[in-house]
Design a protein around this nucleic acid. Structure first.
Lengths: 160, 160
DNA sequence: TGTATTGACCATCTTTGACTATTATATAGC
DNA sequence: GCTATATAATAGTCAAAGATGGTCAATACA
């Protein structure tokens, strides 16, 4: 069931395989998919947020554009710390899932590991009043993030 | 006379003869049988539950779906069900870790996955009064167990 | 009495459109 | 020429509508 949003996401990701940053016309893209221009914003907001590892820049007016940049974390020594700070002591499910997708796309965790992490932070798992949920989710998620990074180190060691 | 539920069950099982996993539209199926959509949920709950060897995933909204995955019980039948029962709605850290180790020894999860699961159920992760901890841990853990088994099915699919 | 069925109400995700904001370019006034 | 203003060409925001599936309690049926 290729949803319009999914197709647009795919399309953009294919474009980005070549380059770490692309530039496009919102209206053109919308026309290409025969949809409302604001649909593009929806896709960007739900699949290309900072938590997903992308930065969006744009400009209006004549010659306007939308630029999508894949954030670099190669060799970023404080990536884990950055993520832990982002999570803080309260995080919603959407943000957590975005970060998990990000880790997967960067090949830092496997598809299965991503699944496990999502399972642990899903609203189903955390059967609590909503207010407490985000706080607890953050605690569980932080723990898993640290572990995920430990796993990476382990693997590195095994490779040697 | 075959009940509606029985017909729907049959219908789904026939679909699943080809593939161990199918995806369908709840509303379409309901319409096909001229019944209330919630009837589908009833059938899924009573005939395609985990203890019947199935895992259900779904998504709402436009392009929504219901996916049914059949677990090929290799070795012990309903191993997942056994584990879920063991966990119940309250489990201590030691027991959870024992189960995780067991899954690893059976090569049902990787070392990394085991690490992630331990991280999620550790007492550090669940910062709550002790009484509530076990209950919450059970909820998180059950969710992860189901996911771990889903992962196994996924991998099997990828192998093919 | 236990199982099956339905319907009302809820939750989630997507798509659209009206309205707004910004920028480049053309035009007018000096 | 230079500046001010209008116009056109973009993109952004937000709330409403549309498209699904979920839950649960009341009711019907076997």
């Amino acid at each position: 069931m290729a949803q319009l949003s999914d197709s647009i996401e795919q399309f953009i990701k294919e474009l980005m395989q070549q380059d770490a940053h692309i530039e496009l016309r919102r209206n053109e893209l919308a026309q290409h998919f025969g949809c409302a221009p604001s649909q593009i914003n929806y896709v960007l907001a739900t699949r290309f947020s900072v938590d997903h590892g992308y930065i969006i820049e744009s400009r209006r007016g004549g010659g306007g554009y939308v630029r999508i940049v894949r954030m670099q974390t190669r060799g970023e020594p404080n990536f884990l710390e950055t993520l832990l700070n982002r999570v803080g002591n309260s995080v919603d499910e959407e943000t957590a899932c975005a970060i998990i997708s990000n880790l997967f796309e960067r090949k830092m965790i496997t598809r299965s590991e991503a699944g496990l992490m999502r399972a642990a932070v899903s609203r189903n798992a955390l059967a609590l009043p909503i207010s407490a949920k985000d706080v607890l989710r953050a605690a569980v998620f932080r723990n898993m993030l640290v572990q995920a990074f430990k796993n990476l180190e382990e693997e590195k060691r095994d490779d040697v």
